[in-house]
Amino acid sequence: MSTIIDKAKEIVERNGMTSKITLLQGKMEEIKMPFPQVDIIISEWMGYFLLYESMLDTVLYARDHYLAKDGKIFPDKATIHMAGIEDGDYKDEKIGFWDNVYGFDFTPLKDTALAEPLVDTVELKACVTDPCKVFEIDLYTINAEDLAFRAPFSLKARRSDFIHALIAWFDIEFTACHKPIRFSTGPHSKYTHWKQTVFYLREVLTVEDGECVTGFLASKPNAKKKRDLDISLKYELQTSDDSRFAAGGLDFKM
């Protein structure tokens, strides 16, 4: 859609590829393709939390209208994962800040701050729980309506600690390559600009090694802005001896 296509045309011409490469400017849903089918679709459609401001709807449109039988999509699989983290200092800085703003009580803004997920880099050592796979996408079979989901999670504590937030990240796979390729945007991997998505909890959870935080993660496109997301979290911690119980839920706008 952007004017960078003008420079792309110059580059194609300078490298003697005008007979092999055709550049089209416009929205996939609106342009007229010069041929009825394609063998391969390549797209970097992923957004924060995988689906925020993503272009996946457009990729699925291209698949349904142009991909030949047995055609390939790159990448073709994506998975959202979750974990629980200890992040007391940063939570106090981001959320507790509103308790005292230069001597004034700004606590009504706490709920607003909690409702906005933070996109930031989380250190692996902050992870209190094992990761949990929550939502999977197969680009060959998924439909646009499937992108609104509600999925269970179970996060097992790997040490006794506090949980201040739940984080989400995604993995991407290119399974149709001669040698399958994948990369992760998780805290255990090299830095990517997608970072991780942090959902701060209203209350601090105290977990012992081996205990599980269970719940549901739900996400759907915003009714007014389809590239924005409405995300909700329901979580519960109950010890085997019933000595501790905690439950809660939060709604987020992204």
Rank of each mutant, 00 (worst) to 15 (best):
E30Y: 05
V207S: 01
A62P: 10
A148H: 07
T197I: 04
R159N: 07
L23E: 09
K226H: 13
D6A: 05
A8S: 13
Y66H: 15
E211D: 12
I42K: 03
P131H: 03
R14V: 03
E30P: 01
L67Y: 11
H178S: 04
K7Q: 14
F162D: 11
N15R: 12
K226M: 10
M254R: 00
C127H: 00
P152D: 09
F199P: 00
E44S: 10
D241E: 15
H193Q: 12
S232H: 07
S2H: 13
T79M: 15
A115C: 08
I5D: 14
D76T: 13
D209G: 02
F162I: 00
M82V: 08
D130G: 11
N143P: 00
V119K: 05
L56K: 01
F252N: 04
P75T: 14
A168I: 00
I40N: 05
V119F: 07
V204T: 15
D120L: 06
Y140S: 11
K190H: 10
T197R: 02
V119L: 04
L50Q: 01
R63H: 09
D171H: 10
P187W: 10
R150M: 08
E86A: 13
D70G: 02
V213R: 01
I181C: 11
E136Y: 07
D241M: 02
P36Q: 12
S189G: 06
I5G: 13
E145H: 15
L205Y: 01
Y90D: 07
S2W: 06
K72Y: 14
D70I: 02
K77F: 15
D39G: 12
A165H: 04
V122W: 05
Y200W: 04
V101L: 13
L24S: 05
K77Q: 14
A126L: 10
G47M: 04
G88Q: 09
A165V: 02
I231M: 07
E30M: 06
A62S: 14
W45S: 12
I231V: 15
K179Y: 08
Y200M: 05
Q238W: 03
K125E: 11
A115G: 09
D241K: 03
T22M: 06
D242T: 03
S189C: 11
V38Q: 01
F149V: 07
I5A: 13
Q238V: 15
F183R: 05
M1N: 12
T58L: 11
G47P: 01
S243F: 11
S2V: 12
H65C: 13
V119A: 04
D89E: 14
G47I: 05
C212Q: 15
H164E: 08
T206K: 02
S189Y: 09
N143H: 12
P117R: 03
I40W: 09
D230F: 05
K253Q: 09
D92N: 15
F153Q: 03
E208P: 00
F162T: 11
Y200G: 02
R182H: 14
A68Y: 02
T3K: 10
V119W: 01
F199V: 07
M254S: 07
A223I: 15
D39Q: 10
S232V: 13
M17G: 09
F74A: 10
M82C: 06
V207L: 00
P221G: 09
K72G: 05
D111G: 10
C132L: 00
G210N: 12
